[in-house]
Design a protein around this nucleic acid. Structure first.
Length: 409
RNA sequence: GGGGGAAUUCCUGAGCGGUCAAAGGGGCCAGACUGUAAAUCUGGUGGCACAGCCUUCGCAGGUUCGAAUCCUGCUUCCCCCA
């Protein structure tokens, strides 16, 4: 196996990485690997808790792919056993317990999604139940005997909780130990993850050393912020772009991204050359955003659909044209009075444009509600206004909330 | 095991027995402006058959003409001591 020169590899590896510990050993590892023609074993672990893979997850996954492209061996750990514990990182609720079947189904589902980023045929996929399920209590104790509470408390989230007098459960303490042990089992050279993984990564080094194995190097990516531009991208926060979403959906979301986040997105989610990124960011922010969106959409779909999505966005949202994908709102014709009319507030609610009539009234009061027939746009001024309802007319309850009326059969 | 404290509408956090659908802040929503960015300004933020009515203040009872506010029991959580 012939690897590229170390410097060349480093340049690729360092991109969009926040921290490498210990930094100086990385070059040595790469050099050794190159000299001996041995690929490095690069580990990335996840818990199969039912994940809808979004761009935040792709940050380490893309890094994995880069390692693959450099000729190294990627190892994906499916934490089917760790899933039973639940990662304490920033969690304020205990995860619901999953059955073994659910975990397995999740794992399969997850791998399908990961396949869009990584070449799975070139990766090892290992479930950590393989070793943990066989571990005897005595061995577990032995393992725990190597970690001190003081060490655990160096972990930032535990430290914070401890200081804030928040509870830290014993089983949560085991989580990093298990994760670290995975590294021993698979003899990892490098582990990828977010910055919040620092403690586990270091613990893995301790354990590896104690097992007389080479110590892994932790490569940590920054946390990708979500569409709100502040918090980390996550499903529960509703600020994410899923990699399975349609090109147009992605496009719409990308354009909502705050300008400040573009550099980060470029760096972490694309391969666009940094110099070029600088040029783009120096230009009109909107153009830079469109380019960014196209680049990423192209990765998960294809360039043509990315172009189409961008063009459509420009036409329908950036421009003045009416949106073409207004979804249908089904209406029960029986609700109309003898003149085919209906109270405005009720109409909005029945079309599912708003969750309640109260909300409908708020929108109307806030000048957000319109009825559109053909090119004619009429504002609804009062909640009790009687609207003559015709099939095919468009009802609007806000910029993003439009429905085309369709009667139910 | 003992002692102390807390549970309020999405979060935080006020809340004299009546004038409390419940202050303030955050978040969020809508409108103006715009590049569906940011900033700013305005309005809103339980539900409904909406000038009125109904359901909310951990749970269950009780005292009162009247309770988020008082009493009893329960549940949960936190802290301290051992």
């Amino acid at each position: 196996m012939q690897f590229p020169p170390v410097e060349e590899q480093l340049a690729i590896i360092r991109r969009g990485v926040e921290k490498i510990v210990p930094e100086e050993q990385l070059a040595k590892k790469l050099q050794h690997s190159r000299d001996t023609g041995t690929p490095l074993r690069v580990k990335y672990g996840i818990d199969p808790t039912g994940i809808d893979v979004h761009l935040g997850h792709t940050v380490p996954l893309r890094k994995m792919r880069q390692f693959q492209q450099l000729g190294h061996q990627t190892v994906i750990i499916i934490g089917n056993y760790t899933a039973l514990v639940g990662d304490p990182s920033g969690r304020d609720e205990t995860r619901a317990r999953l059955t073994a079947e659910q975990v397995e189904a999740n794992a399969v589902d997850y791998l399908n999604q990961v396949g869009k980023v990584l070449d799975l045929s070139q990766a090892e996929v290992i479930r950590n139940g393989e070793w943990f399920s066989k571990m005897a209590f005595a061995e577990i104790l032995e393992l725990c005997g190597r970690v001190t509470v003081a060490q655990l408390l160096t972990r930032e989230d535990f430290a914070k909780r401890y200081k804030a007098e928040q509870p830290i459960y014993l089983h949560e303490c085991l989580y990093p130990v298990m994760q670290a042990w995975d590294s021993v089992e698979i003899r990892s050279d490098i582990e990828l993850g977010g910055t919040e993984q620092l403690y586990s990564f270091m613990l893995a080094r301790d354990l590896q050393r104690q097992q007389k194995l080479p110590e892994q190097i932790g490569i940590m990516s920054p946390i990708l912020v979500g569409l709100d531009g502040k918090k980390r991208m996550g499903k529960s926060l509703g600020n994410y772009i899923g990699i399975s979403e349609s090109p147009y959906e992605m496009m719409k979301k990308f354009m909502q991204l705050p300008d400040d986040c573009m550099r980060m997105y470029y760096e972490l989610l694309t391969d666009v050359d940094i110099d070029e990124v600088n040029t783009l960011l120096a230009g009109h922010p909107k153009e830079a955003k469109v380019t960014l969106a196209k680049s990423i959409i192209g990765e998960y779909h294809d360039e043509t659909s990315a172009e189409e999505a961008a063009a459509r966005w420009q036409r329908e949202i950036g421009g003045k044209e009416m949106q073409s994908d207004i979804s249908e709102g089904f209406l029960n014709e029986d609700l109309l009075d003898e003149n085919g009319c209906m109270q405005a507030a009720l109409l909005l609610k029945e079309l599912d444009l708003v969750p309640s009539t109260s909300e409908a009234m708020r929108r109307i009061k806030g000048n957000a509600a319109f009825v559109i027939i053909g090119d004619e746009k009429t504002r609804i001024n009062d909640r009790s206004e009687l609207i003559r309802v015709v099939e095919g007319m468009i009802v609007r309850a806000g910029k993003k909330d439009l429905k085309r009326v369709k009667f139910m059969d």
